[in-house]
Structures are given as C-alpha cells and as structure tokens.
C-alpha cells in the first residue's frame, strides 16, 4: 500500500480538474525554486500545508509524509555547516544561514510536489503528461507499470512473510540471501504476469494500443485565474519584503 496513492484517491480535491491542481502545485514548486528562500519558501510551505489540510489530510499525516524527505535534505544540508581548508575542517562562517536557506527552499519544493501527489491520482497526472506531448506508447507503458506495481507489491510482501516464517530474516547474511532470492523469484513472476495479461487483453481485442475512456473534466477559467493571481500575489509579496 502506497500512502500517497491511497490519499490521492480519497482526497477532497479528487474531482477538481487536473489543470487547477497542477497550476497550483507546480506554480508553488516554481515559486519555491525562483523566489528568495526568505520569505518565499516559507510562504510556499505554509500555503502547501494549508492546501493539504483543506484537501482532507490531517496535520500529523502531512507531517509524517514530509518527514522522510526532510531527513534526506537535512543530511545534505549539514555539509554546508562545515568548510574544508588547508588547515583542516572548520565551521563555515555563514554555514548556518546557507544550510537554513537550502533547507527551507528544498522543504518548500517537496511540500509543493507532495500536495500534487496527495490530491491527484497517477492516472490523471499521466493523462496530463499525455496532453503535454508524452508519446502515447510511453503513457501506456507508464500506466501499465503503475498497475503492475500494486500486484507485485502484494506478491513481494507475501514472499517476504513466507521467508520470515522460515527464519530467512535472522542475521545479515541470511537477509541478503533472502532478499536476493525474493528478487529472483519476483522477476519471473512479473514477466509471467505480463504474458498472462497479454493473453487476457487479446481476448478483449488488444491490437497493440491500450486506449481507454478517461473521465472528462471541465476546466473553469476563472478558477485558474484566481490560482494564478494568488501565485502572483505570493511572488510579489516575497519580492517586496
């Protein structure tokens, strides 16, 4: 179970047109990248978090989703605290400020992207990419990959449970061996699944393309304008301060 995926399907913003969500989130992402981190990034982080809560997430869930990327960002940012010179390693003069600015920019960017993923199911995102010119074959591969991920995940977790039940997780060497055996057993399962799906789709008239009907969404220009206006306001505000 992938939590962001589950949340996207349960989101209050689930039915909003992709264009609105994409404009808001990608706009926030661009602002996070382009504006000076103070106060731009902080504004973006606040707006994204507010959006998450309005779209139906609880604050603890939102923070839990932000935590792992935050950890990775912290490790990277920590390097800016020190400097290396001929005399050896020392604290960088403005390292704290540099690290803080980097941390806030990255965190704001992560929040902006995360807001998109917890409100928009993958199918809609790929549909959007398709409209932006992603070749149809690649869109189909991408969506079929998405579908297979969940099947294989269930298989992998059953395999893992079975290995643990037979004490395959006891000790470092055994865990490596178990993980290797699992991966080796999973790959043929994945390829088999593909072959069986091909058979199943042939019976449904598969002729090479995987065309389906997408639910139509009506984009309301005034709402796009409001979102764009809001983003512009944020940009203006942070440049002015």
């Amino acid at each position: 179970m992938i939590e962001a995926d589950r949340l996207a399907h349960a989101s209050r913003w689930r039915r909003l047109p992709l264009a609105e969500k994409a404009l808001l989130c990608l706009g926030l992402l661009i602002l996070a990248m382009a504006l000076p981190p103070w106060p731009g990034a902080v504004l973006v982080l606040l707006v994204a978090s507010a959006g998450a809560v309005i779209s139906g997430l609880t604050l603890p869930t939102w923070l839990r989703l932000l935590a792992p990327p935050c950890f990775f960002i912290l490790t990277g940012a920590a390097t800016l605290l020190v400097q290396v010179s001929a005399d050896g390693i020392g604290l960088a003069a403005d390292g704290g400020i540099q690290a803080g600015l980097l941390l806030s920019r990255a965190l704001a960017a992560v929040a902006a992207l995360l807001l998109l993923t917890v409100t928009t199911p993958m199918a809609e995102l790929v549909q959007g990419l398709r409209r932006l010119g992603l070749p149809v074959e690649l869109a189909e591969v991408t969506m079929t990959t998405y579908r297979f991920i969940f099947i294989l995940q269930d298989t992998a977790s059953a395999m893992h449970a079975s290995q643990m039940a037979r004490l395959g997780g006891d000790g470092w060497r055994r865990r490596i061996r178990s993980a290797g055996l699992l991966a080796a057993a999973l790959l043929p399962r994945a390829l088999d699944q593909a072959r069986r799906l091909e058979m199943g789709l042939l019976a449904r008239g598969f002729d090479g393309s995987l065309r389906t009907l997408m639910p139509a969404q009506r984009v309301r220009p005034w709402r796009l304008a409001v979102i764009a206006g809001g983003l512009a306001l944020m940009a203006g505000l942070s440049l002015w301060i």
Binding site: A158, S162, A165, R166, L167, G168, A184, A185
Partner: peptide, 30 residues
C-alpha cells in the same frame, strides 16, 4: 517461528529455490 509454522494461500509466493529439495531445505538451514 520455530514453533509456529505458516503456509500462505498462494504457493508461488513461497517457493524461491530452483528445485523442490533446495526449496524445502531453506527453513532447516536457517
């Protein structure tokens, strides 16, 4: 887990080794 063994529904999720003998030996060797 030594005392309580588990067999899941789908056998394909539980066979990892190339031959039957090897596979059954996974637990005892562990």
């Amino acid at each position: 887990r030594r005392r309580v063994g588990l067999v899941l529904q789908e056998p394909d999720d539980q066979l990892f080794a190339a031959t039957v003998f090897e596979d059954v030996s996974f637990g005892p060797l562990n």
